[in-house]
Design a protein around this nucleic acid. Structure first.
Length: 576
DNA sequence: GCCGTTTTCGGCCCGACTGTTTTCAGTCG
């Protein structure tokens, strides 16, 4: 998406400016604009056409011209000129912990280093020793920083980190010196990937509590320890930052450390305008604390309602909270069923019966079993003969279970073939309760063909859901290119649901797209895409992403009661 | 570079920790 490409350029530009060290506020301006672009739920191309680019927060005269230039030419000459002066690898090196623009600038100037290897050689040869400002510890920290950077460059998926983080919170809550403990930071906001775990505790003896915390068995190494803060590494070199604050500041600290940075900056400017000051210790009028023990009163002291953590990206939630206009976000408990699951019939690891039993334990009212269609050969897709036999098994299971929940729906995840046709003929689709249509191959067709395939699938009256619409895999496959606005429009028109796939490596649609879809009135389905019984709980991550996308339950089809969703499942078939 | 019921110029969020300093700069979140 063009938005992301431009955001990337602005980010690089910001870091290049920080490296040059001339005007940090200019660097900040680029950073802010990049953040706005990332969270935008509309394509900048459309905004440019309507001359509305300046409505994007942080985008003014110059940056709007740059965006226009990029749309026209694919380049931004001013940025390219500025960035040419800074080797690209240097900009990346700012990700090394402990290495910021100043140190990097100094090393570049003195030793002409161009990349990580240069820096490592410098350290190994001992060339840094004796340099002003470079003591033994700083050099050792740089060496470790490089190590850490290379072993954990990639951000981890939320689905991998969240369970570990929740275990740590539990451990912390068990500690005698700890009164309260909560996750903060990006993990609390539910970002699809996170770089570290932020943990907040309250204690009357902060320093002691931290000293006790760092002794937990999960902690492998301590990288920093002070009176209010500790940084440690747990398994997989995952960094955990723990802060300890007194009880009366807990809410303010939770707000502060949850962020996002942009959200907090916005809050502080509001505080300033009202003659208040907000920091991690509370909200203050002069020296008097007027809020901060709980998160709600921290916000209400500023005169606004508390937005759920998932919304705190400065994407309009502060304005909405000020006007008392926050959405009522979907919650995990709103889900009544799962419409996309696999079994041993195709590439799942649990049997049909095991899946249904697990769904019963989770309290689901209905579950669709949607194994792959024949083109998905590696996934052991079902040809029509095997599909027939599976239908029989589903029917006998239904008889056996009687009226116990969940209702078992016969379904399939059907490939959308390269020509836009579906992988089963219509008369076969007609026998299925639930049809999820998904792209599984031929991802590199041009944008028009891709759009066409999705529109064809939506037009098919037997299709209920478009599965993982962009097919992206976090950290390994880019989303396919298609005209998202047209697809959303068609889905809204036809009443076909777009999936928010809960698999931690997919999360597809993502937050921003889910928001655009729901604003356009397209139905959504939050599914697990489970390939084993345990994975049925993956819908949790789908819900988190949907919440980040401002999604309310009413648009999510699998929050609907059985009578309602069964009408929806059959509605386009009555005519045929 | 952005932005404005205190401002179209002059601000731009705030504090902790570390390491190397003898009073503070750099980094981080």
């Amino acid at each position: 998406m063009v938005n992301q490409e431009i955001a990337e350029i602005f980010d690089q530009m910001s870091r290049a400016l920080a490296f040059k060290g001339k005007d940090r506020f200019r660097a900040l301006a680029y950073e802010r604009a990049a953040g706005s672009l990332r969270g935008l739920d509309r394509d900048v191309i459309g905004l440019a056409r309507e001359k509305k680019l300046k409505e994007i927060p942080g985008v003014g005269h110059d940056l709007s011209e740059m965006i226009e230039e990029y749309i026209k030419t694919g380049h931004i000459r001013r940025c390219e000129r500025e960035m040419r002066a800074v080797p690209g690898a240097l900009i990346e090196m700012m990700d090394i912990p402990g290495l910021g623009p100043k140190t990097l600038g100094l090393l570049h100037e003195k030793f002409r280093i161009k990349n990580v290897d240069d820096l490592r050689r410098l350290i190994e040869k001992g060339s840094l020793a004796g340099l002003r400002g470079f003591g033994d510890k700083k050099i050792e920290n740089l060496r470790r920083g490089i190590e850490l950077y290379q072993s954990s460059k990639q951000r981890r998926r939320l689905g991998m980190v969240l369970p570990l983080a929740e275990k740590l919170v539990d451990e912390a809550r068990k500690m005698k010196l700890v009164e309260r403990a909560d996750l903060a930071g990006s993990i609390r906001r539910g970002l699809e990937t996170v770089g570290d775990i932020d943990l907040l505790i309250s204690s009357r003896k902060a320093e002691e509590a931290l000293r006790e915390f760092i002794k937990l068995p999960a902690i492998k190494r301590v990288t920093a320890l002070g009176g209010t803060r500790a940084s440690v590494l747990i398994e997989g070199n995952l960094q955990v930052d723990v802060r300890a604050v007194p009880k009366e500041s807990y809410g303010a600290a939770l707000q502060y450390f949850t962020g996002s940075k942009q959200h907090s900056v916005h809050l502080r400017t509001i505080a300033q305008k009202r003659g208040l000051k907000i920091n991690e210790y509370g909200v203050f009028r002069g020296d008097k604390r007027i809020g901060g023990e709980n998160e709600e009163d921290t916000y209400s002291a500023l005169g606004i309602k508390m937005p759920p953590p998932e919304l705190r990206e400065d994407r309009g939630e502060i304005e909405a909270a000020t006007e008392g206009d926050l959405p009522k976000l979907i919650e995990e408990g709103d889900l009544r069923g799962d419409l996309h699951t696999h079994t041993t019939w195709s590439d799942g690891r649990s049997s049909l019966e095991e899946m249904v039993e697990a769904a019963a334990k989770l309290g689901l009212e209905y579950i669709a079993i949607t194994d792959h269609s024949p083109s998905a050969r590696i996934a052991n897709g079902l040809d029509i003969d095997r599909l027939e036999r599976k239908i029989e098994e589903v029917e006998s299971l239904r008889k056996k279970r009687g009226r116990r929940n969940p209702r078992v729906l016969m379904g399939a995840e059907v490939d959308i073939l390269s020509n836009g046709k579906l992988d089963y003929p219509d008369e076969v689709l007609a026998r299925l309760d639930v049809v999820v249509a998904s792209l599984h191959g031929a991802f590199r067709q041009n944008k028009d063909r891709m759009t066409g395939r999705l529109l064809d699938a939506i037009a098919n009256p037997y299709v209920h859901i478009i599965g993982h619409p962009t097919t992206r895999l976090l950290g390994s496959r880019e989303p396919v290119e298609f005209d998202f606005e047209r697809v959303v429009e068609a889905a809204a028109e036809a009443g076909v649901a777009l999936e928010v796939n809960g698999s931690p490596s997919r999360l597809d649609l993502n937050d921003v797209m889910a928001r655009a879809a729901s604003e356009a009135g397209a139905p959504l389905a939050i599914d697990s895409d489970a390939h084993s019984a345990a994975q049925l709980e993956q819908t949790r991550y789908g819900v988190i992403q949907a919440r980040r996308g401002w999604v309310e339950a009413r648009l999510v089809v699998n929050t609907w009661s059985w009578p309602r969703i069964s009408r929806w499942l059959r509605r386009r078939r009555k005519a045929t």
